[in-house]
Design a protein around this nucleic acid. Structure first.
Lengths: 208, 208
DNA sequence: CGGGACTTTGATGAAGCTCAACGTGTGTGG
DNA sequence: CCACACACGTTGAGCTTCATCAAAGTCCCG
């Protein structure tokens, strides 16, 4: 196929970066297998995890804006396989294939909604609720294993970066949750025991 | 024109809502004149201002996602003129006109970048920096009048909702800024006196 | 002149971040 | 195989920041 010359397949090891904030945008990536975090740096040791990508997800599409600079960093959470296409090739695909453009536009619309909802939540929610919400969202995105644990293994570091909470604060709240039988943890594995309760914590202030 | 039957023009008075969070998406709006805020409610009396729209900007496009529900409210900050098209009509325009879809996709890409940058900033920045950033962004978007004031009149309420800061806290910081000759205020008019200083406040922790 | 809404200032308290110490596991070299 | 070091996980105490509450001041209309 003609496409092949523009396509590359990679294996990415756990912890390895695919691209990094500030680099010029050269390629668009697709996840074949594995899990990948999209994050934004702050302050050398702090970061905010923007979202997680799974098989089927696209990466680097935020670089399609006017500034051809990746605004985020992407790092593999486990060994993953991704494929990438040249940016120019992707752009010309968009020209040729309006349906592709359309579905990409839809994707952006959804992500923008999500992003702005989350922005408001992070701004207004106290820590406990932010963490509850983070757990619920993880379960929603990744589902659970047979034993009922959320089907992703995150370091506490990553979990705190996702909930936008200090590292140490996360422990304390997770303990509290555990003591009130809201969750059950086993190392990195987390099970939600009382999802309705967690849900009301996060929604009762969001008016319709 | 055939379009005409799908088009409506409105005049919107200051303070009037165009559409509201939770309503089903029926139309897409374009701003002809005036200034409009896009905000998300929280907690009956709190809100977060997501962005401001000016002449030429589109409103309601976030409703193009999978859920046909407006995720935000839009309220006129001054008497404005807007035009709207039926959602179905807009969707079919997208089918017919790939260039439109493409530019909409680009728009979304830019807004998503902006949104995620702002999310990180709001999460990590202390109050003073958030306010400095809000002022800089307002100036960037609206420019200044002949006298050098930022060309938008915002209530302190709105300003605090934009900076994601408590109402009273805003006053105190604005005073501080005034005392250190960073800004000059005259009622709702704001002039930035020392933009470089404000800028360093907001950028020195954002590593490249 | 008085009332209501908006603005401004001060005092207080709590939430949560930081720092620092301690515990636990794991890999490495003797 | 053990000892040690280094990373990672856990807990506690102190302290800063900022939201909240309450009160006083100011402006605008009736």
């Amino acid at each position: 196929m003609a496409i092949a010359s523009h396509k590359k397949n990679y294996e990415v090891k756990k912890g390895q970066q695919i691209f990094s904030e500030g680099e010029p945008v050269t390629r668009i990536y697709f996840v074949y297998s594995g899990k990948i975090k999209t994050h934004k740096r702050w302050d050398a040791e702090k970061e905010l995890i923007i979202r997680f990508a799974q098989p089927g997800d696209i990466l680097g599409h935020m670089g399609l804006g006017n500034e051809p600079i990746y605004p985020v960093t992407t790092t593999a959470l486990e060994n993953s396989v991704i494929c990438s296409v040249d940016l120019d090739f992707f752009e010309s695909s968009l020209n040729v294939n309006p349906r592709l453009t359309y579905s990409l536009m839809k994707l952006f619309a959804n992500e923008l909604q999500e992003s702005e909802k989350r922005m408001r939540n992070l701004v207004h929610m106290p820590v406990k609720e932010r963490i509850a919400l983070a757990l619920l969202n993880l379960k929603k995105q990744f589902g659970v294993t047979e034993e009922g644990f959320i089907a992703i293994e995150l370091s506490r570091q990553d979990l705190s970066s996702f909930a936008a909470v200090a590292y140490e604060t996360l422990f304390k709240v997770m303990n509290e949750f555990q003591q009130s039988n809201l969750i059950l943890t086993n190392g990195k594995n987390i099970k939600l025991l009382n999802e309705p309760e967690l849900r009301t914590m996060t929604t009762d202030k969001i008016l319709p």
